[in-house]
Design a protein around this nucleic acid. Sequence first.
DNA 1: CTTGTATTGCAAACTGTTCGCATTACTGTA
DNA 2: TACAGTAATGCGAACAGTTTGCAATACAAG
Lengths: 145, 145
Amino acid sequence: MKHEYFSSVLKKCGVKVTKQRVAILEVFEEGCKPISAEGIFGVLKKSKKVSVDLATIYRNLQVLEAHKVIRRVDLRGDSQLYELGGHHHHHILCTACGATEGFDFCIANTIEKHVVKQSKKFKVITEHAVELFGICSECVSKSKK
Amino acid sequence: MKHEYFSSVLKKCGVKVTKQRVAILEVFEEGCKPISAEGIFGVLKKSKKVSVDLATIYRNLQVLEAHKVIRRVDLRGDSQLYELGGHHHHHILCTACGATEGFDFCIANTIEKHVVKQSKKFKVITEHAVELFGICSECVSKSKK
DNA sequence: CTTGTATTGCAAACTGTTCGCATTACTGTA
DNA sequence: TACAGTAATGCGAACAGTTTGCAATACAAG
């Protein structure tokens, strides 16, 4: 199932299928939220199924990002977060409690068209980041008390 | 002129007007581009007008950001970049050579409305980041050679 | 099963950033 | 203009997150 799926993903990338890599991908899938290297390390340490070195995690995050299996998420935290590549979406972060939520729609294409039209320097846009920051309803009600 | 202007900005913030702070703000104004603590340090070192410790720069970046005199820019680099608060805009970064350009229009309000409408969790949005990544025309033509 | 090479674990190095503390220099008041 | 109180600075050391070198390991192809 999952294991086989991730194996095939790794094979398609042309990299070796190791238990560490599969374990890392499983953490991503189960978590459903952007997570850091240290975060993955913590999850795997607790689970005790596989022991993976932190350096190995960092190296694999690079490999997986290069093959677009995962992508970086810029949420202004102390450490770099990643999530499964899957479908395109963006995030909103609660600056009070750190809660995150994804949102599916994206009008970056519109922005990109504008930029390409107006900019002399840039005609090729390969990626974009759209992240919102706010206060989640829970924190709003807390602060009113 | 500039010096007096920055002094008044600092006074409005209720912080002391020091030559270091003014020097830092001058670097921001002259550079016209997002710059890092280390970057500011380098500029000031070369100029030799004022010597400012790196720790002082970091501390002041925090102070200035807290007072919204400057703002953070998330361009996925090794270090955190900042720019003068001034008018609202976003950036596009060339992933090949690091060149940046600002663009003025912004449809984040539209996205924000969507999010507020669709999300149960978030009704209050305070900030947003919209950054594009691409290849600048110069790098495109270089790669074709 | 064997072999070649990618990958891992471990420890050490590095980089960007923060902190503690004594010294300095702003700012408000006399 | 001098003075006192306090915020801000410089310096060094500490830190967190991340990267690297290298020997040992384990995957993949034959």
